[in-house]
Design a protein around this nucleic acid. Structure first.
Lengths: 150, 150
DNA sequence: TTATTTTTGTTGCAATTGCAATAATAATAG
DNA sequence: CTATTATTATTGCAATTGCAACAAAAATAA
């Protein structure tokens, strides 16, 4: 029955690959778009949450964010109430590329869902959200070092 | 509408991350399991097809296969009718780890689909297969260097 | 047949990725 | 209040990843 997860893997890798190739046009290297879009959409988000949302290692997110900052696409601001965290914001330059990322996303969306009715899209979205919830619980456990039983 | 693709990305990364952590127990490093399972299931498959199935760069597949061979988990055999290709087969050692990969896959499957009825699973599978077909056409084009219009 | 194009495979970089280990602050427990 | 634990961020490796660029064989075209 695990063909479902394989399909998901294939789709994810294919789309990620496409995005990475297309975003070179905007001077973004592999993976960066993931972080930038989310920072644009949730100004003030911190690195830790970003990694959690994207489902990537904390240190990976750290370097991606670091590079985005170095490129002047985002900036880190210290929080006055909490010296531990650094809030992330897109700079003007970052905000400038965002529309391109959006358009690409919309297009990939259109391509991916071609031939699906509105009801099917709705159903797919609902099912995937449930699957994601199921999976993310395990991911967090395993990431913490806990072992799954089977 | 592109939340669907985001969900897919999250699920894929989370599961991949879990698998990579769990398969260290069997001496497999990041990504290797993807190739090994498919070679076990389709003995005689060639590298190029493997990359296409998994949706990964040809050179990435090349190194993964190379390493699997070095570890003695698979072997490359020249084809008598076609000197260009090399067919891939799991060795006894490779076949030995396969059941573990399977069990892990079954478990991830169970976790991911928890709470979904049989009909929902069926529906999800159908929808994802269609999405995958849509996406893989674009992937192959973009990989060939062609540009998408939007 | 000969020439061109496509398929399949490899290696040299340069980059991302993630595990360990470290540090510092915040939150919780005793 | 002090001690312990959890959160957040960073850096040092060692590895995977993928784009270019190449090679060689096969498939197609002229």
């Amino acid at each position: 029955m695990k063909e479902i997860l394989r399909e998901i893997g294939m789709i994810a890798r294919a789309l990620d690959s496409i995005s990475n190739i297309e975003f070179k046009e905007v001077e973004l290297t592999r993976g960066q778009y993931l972080y930038l879009v989310r920072i644009c959409e949730q100004p003030g988000i911190i690195q830790e949450k970003l990694a959690e949302m994207i489902k990537v290692d904390r240190t990976t997110a750290a370097r991606a964010v670091q590079k985005l900052e170095l490129q002047g696409l985002i900036e880190k601001r210290s929080d006055p109430d909490n010296r531990k965290i650094k809030r992330l914001y897109a700079t003007d330059k970052g905000k400038e590329v965002y529309p391109f990322l959006q358009r690409e996303g919309v297009h990939s969306d259109k391509v991916a869902l071609k031939g699906l009715s509105e009801e099917e899209v709705e159903a797919l979205m609902g099912l995937l959200t449930r699957v994601r919830h199921n999976v993310e619980a395990d991911w967090e456990e395993v990431k913490k070092g806990n072992k799954r039983q089977y």
